[in-house]
Simulated scan of single mutants.
Amino acid sequence: MSIFGNTFQTLEYALDFSSKRNKLISTNIANVDTPNYKRKDTSFNEILNEKLGQSFQAKQTHVKHIPFQNQSYTYKNFIQNNLQYNHNGNNVDMDKEMAQLAKNQIYYQSLVDRLNGKFHDIQTVIRGGR
């Protein structure tokens, strides 16, 4: 474990997820009128909890090498086939997508704010509490 704990790593993964989710939501919005297009989404919470509960070790070739964690996280993308909102087979609900986009943007900004707060804390410690 680093001197900062898992906070930076968790924030990194969460920011990466939010960025990927933003792209999927944008793709859904761009395809709102595409016949037979099925909305796409991604899942992150289950994977984050699963990965944070595991400890990965890289191969150390020398006793004095510092251990580090594998940072290859993936997200589960899925297509929602069971819904149909439009007569052309498309299941993108523009209102729902816009709400999801706004929610994701708020989530992303809160993560950035938290990361900035952590850096500010470190800066305060480096300056000796000033």
Rank of each mutant, 00 (worst) to 15 (best):
51 K>P: 07
73 Y>A: 13
53 G>I: 09
110 S>N: 12
36 N>R: 08
63 V>Y: 06
72 S>H: 13
111 L>N: 15
96 K>A: 05
79 I>A: 03
101 L>W: 00
74 T>P: 02
34 T>K: 13
50 E>A: 09
15 L>A: 11
47 I>F: 09
8 F>S: 01
79 I>S: 01
38 K>A: 12
68 F>R: 05
107 Y>F: 12
4 F>A: 12
82 N>R: 01
122 I>E: 01
15 L>R: 13
3 I>L: 04
51 K>T: 09
13 Y>Q: 07
32 V>S: 10
116 N>F: 02
79 I>K: 09
42 T>P: 00
116 N>D: 11
120 H>E: 13
31 N>P: 14
84 Q>C: 12
6 N>V: 01
7 T>L: 05
85 Y>G: 04
30 A>W: 03
12 E>Y: 14
24 L>I: 06
58 A>S: 15
119 F>R: 07
128 G>F: 02
114 R>E: 11
4 F>P: 03
34 T>Y: 14
125 V>A: 14
122 I>G: 01
32 V>Q: 15
102 A>N: 13
20 K>T: 06
78 F>H: 07
102 A>S: 11
28 N>F: 01
88 N>G: 11
81 N>Q: 00
27 T>A: 07
101 L>A: 02
45 N>F: 05
79 I>H: 02
25 I>P: 02
23 K>A: 10
66 I>K: 12
65 H>S: 12
